[in-house]
Amino acid sequence: MSNKVLICRCEDVLLDELEEAIAKGHDDLESVKRYTGFGTGWCQGKQCTALVARLLVSRGGVAPALPITPRPPFHPIPLADLAGLCPDDAEEPA
């Protein structure tokens, strides 16, 4: 049986990889996010941020005052739908 523990399911970030990042000195939540890519996939951290924060604190890292910066959109949106929201006054310069 594999002993791999998946923490961020969207970006396939393993517990081991998070431990390694913290051991390398990425000891605050935003730095760990950048080093491992956790929270940057389909769910944008909705499922994994709390787990990573708990792990970070238990390994002596900096206790986060805030979660990672939430990135819009809340749900993935097709480009064609967004294009339809373009304001009428915005011309496209040549």
């Binding site: 940057t40 996939g41 480009l79």
Partner: peptide, 11 residues
């Protein structure tokens, strides 16, 4: 062709 592709994150 990208019309149906979804935006995941902006910053």
């Amino acid at each position: 062709i990208l019309g149906g592709v979804r935006v995941l994150r902006q910053w």
